[in-house]
Nucleic acid binder design. Structure first.
Lengths: 266, 266
DNA sequence: CGTAACGTCTCACTCAATGAGACGCTGAAA
DNA sequence: TTTCAGCGTCTCATTGAGTGAGACGTTACG
């Protein structure tokens, strides 16, 4: 649910423990070599990732032993290994099952000219399953695929809340105070309940700067074959480009995407 | 004092410690998921790799936190994550930039006298992994290494579609309307399906001004050792220089390049 | 309403990873 | 040649990250 780094007994001395897991570092090295333009010296790898000299060599050699990395024959530089290529082919093949979703999302995003994403409800918050961006703006890294956002102040989250069974909804509504992310965030349970009522009746959900200042959001449900809301598709954009006056315009496009996606989930 | 309270049902005489390397196991999990035919239950992963229950969950969740794995929507099964796909594209690109391999594409391009590129399928579109140009023309910057092009209107894309398993192909064909890039683009699913049929039978794919006006393209598959299409190599040129009448001429050259490159993908 | 299967949590234990420092190698400058 | 500098390798005390048995929740199902 929360972040994963488990620093339990760290009380007073803060952030002075850059202890890193071997696995994290290993993947960092692999990714670095994969994204490099050419062969890399171990020195460079260590310097880039801030690894002590022996550690860098140990991890690199360990990857070489696995065949994931290799050494250039004359220079001793590090290049990608044959096992990595095998793994990569497998990964791309396995990730094919995601292709249809992404395909739809891209089409919707292209038509709207704005960033779109697909998310589901997991635990107490919304998880982004996939995302197609249209430009580079600050939100980009903050809310990438896999990141979690609250339910009470996002278009998707409120949509899920509105379509939940009554019992679970009231339980979630009672589950504590809602943080005020912006001045527009609905923190009062009654106001939120009323908003959910509206959303349920309309069949779509809006986020008018309730989570991030200056960002407007529209979300529609993705229904399973049984008619249950299993996911949602949303568009988000700066409010200067997307606001209440454009909602009627984007809805049919979003709904078409949602319909195409519901076929994939059914 | 050591408690031998539990007699394990087997392994009575092995002096070998339960040797555990977190990194090895993590990569084993990733590879297992990547090479699986579909979503895997954590139970299955643990059983296959001989991992204790909590350990299996810990490692899997750690990979999920990194975005390398993900969970299926309704079933809680494990599938490949989006970060893994990103990593995979990087790996394949890096592995193609290795000197011995790069020369293959250069040779093909030189022999044909036209621009050639190598690409794979990722997330519903084609990604160029490598590219050798022969002259400076408008497409140059637009479709460099790393750029993505649609599936339905490119030689490579259609080739991938044609060699996909039936289920996945039909799901992708159902995943939305196909944008008409030019007057020649196949936008009708039925017409596209018929074209894919032809491509599958012929073993190569053509793009006759379906993506860019005036550009003709020929693509052949790069097969893995198991005979699966894992990538493709293509030549593209202005139609005045490359068209149907030259296809038979370029095919053997492309195929020779494809064969040389196939070793790179296992 | 068991019950069975699976996921999560806890918690001592301990082994694998860590990294400062010493040492060796090779190649280029002096 | 010698000297020096930059890298890679080796050693080893230290420790905390990883481990896994067992207990506990949580669904799914007959």
């Amino acid at each position: 649910m929360k972040t994963r780094s488990t620093q339990l007994p760290d009380t007073s001395d803060d952030a002075a423990k850059p202890k890193a897991a071997a696995t994290d570092r290993t993947f960092a090295i692999l990714e670095l070599v994969a994204s490099a333009s050419g062969p890399l010296a171990v020195k460079t790898i260590g310097a880039t990732l801030g690894l002590p000299k022996p550690t860098a060599h140990r991890l690199v050699n360990s990857l070489i032993d696995k065949g994931l990395l290799a050494r250039d024959l004359e220079t001793r530089d590090v290049i990608i290994g044959v096992e990595a290529a095998r793994l990569a082919v497998g990964i791309l093949r396995a990730s094919l099952s995601r292709a249809p979703v992404r395909s739809v999302l891209r089409a919707v995003s292209a038509e709207l000219g704005e960033t779109c994403n697909v998310g589901v409800l997991d635990g107490g918050d919304v998880v982004y399953l996939d995302r197609v961006e249209v430009e580079h703006w600050p939100l980009r890294l903050q809310f990438g695929v896999g990141s979690r956002v609250p339910m009470h102040c996002t278009a998707m989250g409120k949509l899920f809340l509105a379509t939940l069974p009554d019992g679970m909804r009231s339980r979630l509504l009672a589950s504590g105070p809602f943080s005020a992310q912006t001045a527009h965030t609905l923190t009062d349970p009654d106001a939120l309940a009323a908003e959910l009522e509206r959303i349920g009746a309309r069949g779509y959900s809006l986020d008018d700067e309730e989570y991030v200042v200056g960002v407007f959001c529209v979300a529609v449900p993705i229904l399973s074959s049984t008619g249950r809301t299993v996911a949602a598709i949303a568009v988000q954009a700066p409010k200067v480009r997307l606001s209440h006056d454009r909602v009627e315009q984007v809805l049919p496009i979003l709904r078409r995407g949602a319909e195409a996606l519901s076929a994939q989930f059914g």
